[in-house]
Nucleic acid binder design. Structure first.
Lengths: 221, 221, 221, 221
DNA sequence: AATGAATGAGAGTTCATTCAT
DNA sequence: AATGAATGAACTCTCATTCAT
């Protein structure tokens, strides 16, 4: 006797349930969809419609969670920097300054290759959107760079590196790992897959040589 | 007596010539405007309308010189690769392999910083447009890479570099100069202007150390 | 006690229903406007903008209901063929083959004159758009022609018509009713209005004569 | 010594010569090109550019010979009606009214099938362009119709045709030949090629029967 | 007589975004 | 919380036409 209604209600609840997400979950859903689309298609080709379709909501719903398209990508960038910083912090437990700095480089490249979309968004692309924001948001990024400089300084203080210029040396190291990462991400198609691993390893070895270049100096004198 | 014909012919040639020059000039006009907008706003934000407005012509006029938007950017890319290759060729006159390779790196970074937009278009961005084209157009790019590999091999053959692996070493060097170039272009705002020159110089010195790393090895043994 | 649920359900169904009706209504709105413009101005002059203006919506709204301009006209054509076929089926209840065939002709011309735009779209125009479509959509049209051939055959079998060639006779009859219809639609302005009715009637009488032409044959022998 | 100039001049004259056309020739050239494009692509798809390209002149040149696009097609229509009328006049030498009228029908269909583009332009299409013109231009068309009516009247006066209504009978005959013609032109693809000739012949025979329908009447009484 | 250069007007279409429900 | 419906603004591109040369 009740069955008709009960069924209906249960069914509705079922549907409801599938969709019941708290704010955080829903936001993550949107962000994930946006990110997935981003690497495949680039910023301008990620449309609100496509995001909505991916998560099976209406476009209008997106706006309940994010002010606009920009905010979505801005949030993604922020999350990226946070994750990036966290992963880099992990090497700070290593005592030996040389080992620490080498590990730092490894972690950097690893992050880039394992989070291509984030890395692209954070360090490669230059959609003007991402530039006109409060400086504070770059802070985590700046923190990461400070970490690098710290680690470089430790090495220099311990007598490593030919140069004693922390700023320049840090930038050079950053350039190196960024070059490796971004080329693999953006021009990876130019390199046969079987080479890629080898190349990363070889590149990091060269990184080690740069750091260790002090002995050479002494001897040369 | 001949004057009539002569005048006519000369005048005609003059007109002809002027026309040719104008067409080329106009094309350059369009390309320049597109390029200027590109670095500022990114591919998708460069619209035919904006280009037209910049050069003070109507949008329809653009289509008298280029088939469509894609052709504009494709032409730019082609020009970029040509210029890039030509500049790199210039170092090949240097006999000493080490000096040559270092000069190669310098020229690379110099090109990138003096032609930011081209460099961006060629090596940083990844608008799908630029990928689905005749392979031939990438050839100049590939040629440049071959040049690098040649120069790396000369150094290795001369006993320089710790590693004997041309492929990996070349990629590492490319990564390095690409890293320097692209960070300065895209994240230059993170670095105070007065540092930039210094940083480039310092980075290139490190490049020299990498190449010279052989002596160190011998001695260590 | 149940009222709360019941109300809710009924209300929901109501809304659902209204939505469905509205969508269909809106589609019809668009189709009607397109059709109205079509007869007045021809396919190429029916623009999305004009349709939008006619129904007092924005151009973008049209795209919520139809994928593109082609789909609008394709839908119209389909509807036309369906209506056409349905109306023709109605004569099949008539037993007497001669009366049936004559009625068939009458229905044909009646459809054409009462649905000028449809008739134009279906049988007069030749916008290439309408030709490159799924063959299935022409099927209803083909079905109609089959119906005609069937009816012609019945008459021939019953000894009517001079010729025994179904194919040719059917085509001749089709030509006749098509000629009457299309001239009235397209060159109607050449004929004073007060004549039109008379003309149609007269033409259909001649049609009757063609069918009845058997007696003559008998006698001639 | 003179050779250089002479060559040039001769060459120029050569080019000149190839292009030297008097006004009439040039107009014909444009009209032919327009016509050729018309049947293939329809009025709206015949662009001035395409015409210009076909005749190897610049679009601007077209405007030296025709005020605008409309005038081109209007001229074509006028030419069509003239040709049409001339061909129909040819049957007037036939004395026997029945034979004359039958020949009239044959000539009509023959004209249509041999001048599909003209026929389309004159009797099938309905680009609004062609309607808003001076009534006078339709006169040749009207003349042709008058001819038909004359011939119909001759037959009726001679005791042929069941009906005595010239107007209606003429219209019916016109409908018939127009139906045959236009279906073959526009829906020809629905009919296998090997049938077409047969069909035309069969249709015209039926036309004969209609005209001859008097005997039947007499006998029936 | 012929045309290169230019453009206003307008086409189809897509998008981020809003709002009433 | 969710969305269907709607739209203004912008996009790329094409066309008939004009005009100075």
């Amino acid at each position: 006797m009740f069955s008709k209604f009960t069924t209906l209600i249960i069914k509705n609840m079922g549907i409801q349930e599938r969709k019941v997400r708290n704010r955080k979950e829903m936001e993550k859903h949107v962000l994930d969809a946006a990110m997935k689309l981003y690497l495949k298609e680039g910023y301008k080709n990620v449309t609100i419609r496509k995001i909505a379709k991916t998560i099976e909501y209406s476009p209008a719903t997106i706006y309940l969670y994010f002010k606009d398209k920009e905010e979505i990508f801005f949030t993604l960038q922020k999350l990226g920097f946070k994750k990036f910083y966290t992963e880099q912090l992990s090497v700070q437990t290593i005592k030996d300054p040389v080992k620490r700095l080498i590990a730092h480089g490894e972690v950097y490249v690893k992050f880039a290759l394992e989070n291509k979309e984030y890395y692209d968004l954070m360090f490669i692309t230059s959609e003007p959107v991402f530039m006109f924001k409060d400086r504070k948001d770059w802070d985590t990024g700046v923190n990461s760079y400070d970490l690098l400089k710290q680690n470089v300084k430790s090495c220099i203080d311990a007598g490593f590196f030919k140069s004693k210029d922390v700023e320049t040396t840090a930038f050079a190291l950053w350039s190196f790992v960024h070059g490796v990462s971004s080329l693999l991400i953006k021009r990876g198609f130019m390199i046969p897959d079987e080479f890629k691993k080898h190349i990363v390893k070889g590149s990091l070895e060269i990184l080690g040589q740069i750091i260790n270049s002090k002995q050479q100096i002494t001897i040369n004198k």
